[in-house]
Design a protein around this nucleic acid. Structure first.
Length: 604
RNA sequence: GCCGGUGUAGCUCAGGGGCAGAGCAACGCUUUCGUAAAGCGUGGGUCGUCGGUUCAAAUCCGACCACCGGCUCCA
């Protein structure tokens, strides 16, 4: 039997059955619920008579391997609800499904292999016994709600990995080990970018000088791109009376996730969970002429959301989120032009990071109108405008119903990182509802009050989450322009400290971030420390360099040094070095393509 | 929030009812070095927190806090 990428799904699904059998033999009374194939493997949910942990997985896996040779042939037969009852009386989950299918007049089928009968919609065509018994592996134990509903009982889910060959399984495990080494939760503190304190609380990262530098450098780049397109900075308080959110509709929809504050006089306030309502009030400060529009407000600022404790995860999900937020208040006739301007910003920004972008049209879910503000016709209109823009851009933009914001549809940008994972990053949203609720208008050519519309745009989205993504994308080895420390100067001994200071001053004069380590440790040790900190350039200086007014760029640094006129050298003069560094920073160059960052030039 | 796991020095971890341990880091002295870890020495702890059991708790039990893997949620 040849296992291909088409039939591996079938194998994975069959393995879920085998897992169910193994668990039922080891834990009599266990009820197996559902068990599908998933990306990279399969899972099976159980209600178990005993608690199990990851330590038990090896035993279960051995049992699966012991049973495997008997799984030579599948038989299937259509059954009646009565027959299901007879066979699965003991299993309330199978019975719940069977009753439901019967009600919907769906066919009920049993699939049997290796003496194990299961109620299943089928697709098992391959003799499982022929697979390599080492091409699968049980992976994790987790809780999962029956049918994905948190009101239901929590079952025990066992995850397994399964591939066509053991080699592929090993490769997958190696890739996962690679991802773990890049984990921002480990790399961030190791590179001294951020920290958490138990006294401050979960989900509330604290930013060190280096991390703050990184945040500010990224935000300055976004601001540079916005500023060139007519945006202006605004600033707002981080709290508000609840009245603002009652008007906007956020109070009703998100009151559980708001951090609330009661003043000593008993008035109710909230920490802002988003910025748009505040920004509407900046727009609403006066009557606008159509000539003054668009008004483009940019504001990088923190918002606060009372996330469930179990949701928090490093920087990827936090309780205080820095948004690089912007709102454009404009006439409907200006929407397309403003949208395209933001689109350009997104492309320029992500080009500099080396992310490939895909576009997604996030639309409302017509089946759940209660989840959204406004009326169907304004949604239809707004979504039509976004479709036109995507078409005009000539990009492939798959539509995702149900992914819209509650006030309007979005164009979302999905970025693929260096190890192939996809993330939603930038977003541009078209909002006809907030302007309605806050009665935002301008006076048009005919002296009438004209309803305006609002665009919401974030380039990085949440800076915390964005940093989590790029720390992992770059494995902590940032491009020169982003590195908190750009050059480490390492004199072979303190005899050359003066020359080192000369090199340092030459770089610092040009705004380069430099660190010089005194020679109270061995050369090797200082080089190692700089490598671990992933400092892009290390220059070693000693007698040779002092005599010739050069620096020695450590040859095995991330990439070769290139002078400003394009010459590759490890022994540039001080002036050549400064000019080359400056050019590389200004050009926001990425010296290595992300996939090259996997090799051992980068200490992980 | 729910299920499971984990919590010992700044970091990585050992120990497991009877004196709190190692390596790295830090600090001091010696070394001044040519491309990934010099040598010797010193300091560092309410063993996550609070409570219980016990003559005795880092160790056993409970609650809480925090972290990890999932589930649910995610403007």
């Amino acid at each position: 039997m040849k296992i291909t990428h088409e039939n591996i799904e079938v194998i994975r699904h069959s393995l879920a059955h085998l897992l169910a059998m193994a668990v039922r033999e080891l834990y009599p009374g266990a009820q197996n619920a559902i068990g599908p194939a998933i990306e990279n493997g399969f899972y099976q949910d159980f209600e178990l008579p005993a608690q199990i942990s990851e330590n038990d997985l090896l035993t279960i896996e051995k049992k699966m391997q012991e049973l495997l040779p008997r799984w030579t042939e599948w038989t299937s037969n259509t059954v009646t609800l009565e027959e299901v009852k007879k066979e699965f009386d003991w299993n309330k989950y199978k019975m719940e499904l069977a009753n439901e299918f019967a009600k919907e007049k769906k066919t009920l089928t049993f699939y049997t292999c290796g003496g194990f009968v299961d109620l299943c919609k089928g697709g098992h065509t391959l003799p499982l016994a022929e697979i390599d018994p080492h091409s699968f592996k049980l992976d994790r134990v987790a809780g999962a709600y029956w049918r994905g509903d948190e009101k239901n009982k929590m079952l025990t889910r066992i995850y397994g990995l399964a591939f066509a060959t053991k080699k592929e399984l090993d490769e997958y495990l190696a890739m996962r080990a690679e991802a773990e080494k890049r984990d921002h939760k480990k790399l961030g503190p190791a590179l001294d970018l951020f920290t958490f304190s138990e006294l401050v609380g979960a989900g509330l990262p604290l930013w060190t000088p280096k991390g703050t530098l990184l945040r500010n450098t990224l935000d300055a780049f976004v601001w540079e791109l916005r500023s060139a397109r007519g945006y202006e900075r605004v600033e707002i308080p981080h709290i508000t009376k609840k009245d603002l959110y009652e008007r906007s509709g956020h109070w009703d929809k998100f009151k559980d996730e708001l951090f609330r504050i009661t003043t000593r006089e008993g008035h109710e306030f909230a920490m802002k969970p988003m910025n748009c309502p505040h920004h509407t009030q900046i727009y609403a400060r006066k009557k606008w002429s159509y000539r003054d529009l668009p008004q483009r407000y940019a504001n990088t600022t923190m918002v606060y959301r009372d996330e469930q404790s179990g949701e928090l995860a490093g920087l990827a999900r936090v309780r205080c989120i820095t948004q690089d937020d912007a709102h454009v208040f404009c006439r409907e006739s200006q929407v397309k032009e403003e949208f395209l301007k933001i689109w350009d910003i997104v492309h320029e920004f992500y080009g500099a990071i080396g992310f490939e972008l895909k576009v997604r049209l996030s639309l409302h879910d017509p089946k759940h109108p209660e989840k959204y503000l406004g009326n169907p016709s304004s949604w239809k209109k707004a979504e039509g405008i976004l479709r036109d823009i995507a078409r005009e851009k000539g990009v492939d933009a798959p539509e995702a119903p149900g992914e819209a914001a509650f006030y309007g549809p979005k164009i979302d940008f999905m970025g693929k990182d260096s190890i192939g994972r996809e993330w939603q990053v930038a977003t541009i949203q078209l909002d006809m509802n907030m302007p309605e609720r806050f009665n935002l208008t301008c006076v048009n050519e005919k002296s009438e009050d004209e309803r305006i519309v609002m665009l919401h745009a974030a380039i990085m989205g949440a800076i915390e989450r964005y940093l989590a993504i790029i720390i992992e994308h770059f494995a902590g080895a940032f491009p020169l322009w982003l590195s908190p420390i750009q050059v480490a100067i390492i004199p072979v001994s303190d005899k050359f400290a003066d020359y080192g200071a000369k090199v340092r001053d030459a770089l610092q004069k040009e705004g380069v971030r430099v660190e010089m380590k005194h020679a109270d440790e061995t050369l090797g040790k200082r080089i190692r420390a700089a490598e671990m900190q992933k400092i892009p350039y290390m220059v070693i200086i000693g007698e040779r360099e002092e005599k010739t007014d050069t620096v020695n760029v450590r040859p095995y640094t991330i990439a070769p040094f290139v002078t400003s006129d394009g010459k590759q050298t490890n022994e540039p003069s001080i002036n050549e070095f400064v000019a080359g560094i400056k050019k590389e920073i200004e050009g926001k160059q990425i010296r290595l393509e992300p996939h090259e960052r996997k090799n051992n030039q980068i200490p992980l």
